[in-house]
């Protein structure tokens, strides 16, 4: 792996051409990335990724570890800004607005593009306060009753309400791993984002909790545009409508999920999916 990576980076390759397969029934584009490059200090982590992410559907990013899929995901709500020495080039449009434009407030962007992390990270507060955090800071509720309504409906949408309704004021850290992750999803949807980014949301969970979260993702795409990074190809196949395959910092192939999994156009995609590397 490492040797391959070195080799490709040493040789200046011509601009890589992503193989794209359009949807049979194309949806409008929510997020459009054009030639996005990311640098960590001197090191280039992403070499020119372009992709259109359709609205109200699930797009999965797959690929071996270190391929840049998480890096790209973190560009979509500018979480890379929090890393010292990280630089992003190229253009990312959310509803046709450049998210790296100086006039756009990163606070607004992150409210509209929520994120769920690999490891559940509830705040050390009560379940209620965890979900109420976003609406409170963004001023989405005019009254206490409204806030409660938002919290309850978010927990319901995250299919967690029934499990926690009797202990809303107990610490969120006391829940099981799967519940914690659903709490984080509830926390994210409480601010009604347009897009939810999920960075391997099930990798720290057991199979039963994973199934629940996957089920939830499937429900959520009714209302949200979802981008999910996953290690598990089965998961990508189960939950996503479109799949993008990353390798060594480039987007190799993207297309409808069943196409990518059953009939990939690129040899590298096929090698990865059939388990020859990764």
């Amino acid at each position: 792996m490492a040797d391959v990576a070195l080799a490709t980076r040493d040789v200046p390759t011509p601009e890589f051409q992503t193989v794209r397969t359009p949807d049979p029934h194309p949806r409008p584009t929510k997020v459009k990335a054009d030639n996005v490059k990311v640098f960590y200090g001197q090191k280039q982590a992403l070499n020119g990724v372009s992709i259109d992410i359709p609205v109200k559907s699930v797009t999965a990013f797959i690929g071996p570890s270190g391929c840049g899929k998480s890096t790209f995901l973190r560009c979509l709500n500018r979480m890379n800004d929090t890393i010292d020495g990280c630089r992003v080039e190229g253009e990312i449009l959310l509803d046709n607005r450049d998210i790296y434009d100086a006039s756009l407030d990163v606070v607004e962007l992150r409210a509209r593009v929520g994120m769920v992390f690999q490891k559940p990270n509830p705040f050390p507060k009560s379940i209620f306060d965890n979900v109420a955090y976003g609406p409170k800071i963004h001023g989405l509720a005019r009254s206490k009753a409204e806030l409660e309504e938002i919290v309850v409906s978010s927990l319901q949408k995250a299919s967690l309400f029934n499990e926690v309704k009797d202990r809303l004021h107990e610490p969120g850290t006391g829940l099981s791993g799967g519940q914690q992750q659903r709490l984080c999803i509830a926390r994210t949807i409480a601010v009604s984002p347009d897009v939810i980014l999920m960075d391997e949301p099930c990798s720290a969970l057991d199979p039963i909790a994973t199934a629940k979260v996957e089920e939830l993702i499937d429900e959520l795409r009714e209302n949200f545009t979802i981008v999910i990074v996953t290690h598990s190809m089965q998961q990508a196949a189960r939950v996503s409508q479109r799949t993008a395959f990353f390798h060594l910092g480039t987007l190799v192939e993207e297309g409808p999920t069943d196409h990518v999994f059953t009939n990939p156009s690129e040899r590298r995609t096929q090698d990865y999916i059939t388990g020859r590397f990764g």
């Binding site: 979480m79 929090t82 990270n121 509830p122 507060k125 926390r187």
Partner: peptide, 23 residues
């Protein structure tokens, strides 16, 4: 992860500090 979680919700640095990190 706490800090990232808060920032990803669209909290400002000061909100992250006073509402999550400090407590």
């Amino acid at each position: 992860a706490m800090r990232d979680g808060s920032l990803a919700m669209g909290a400002t640095a000061s909100e992250t500090m006073t509402k999550v990190l400090l407590p």
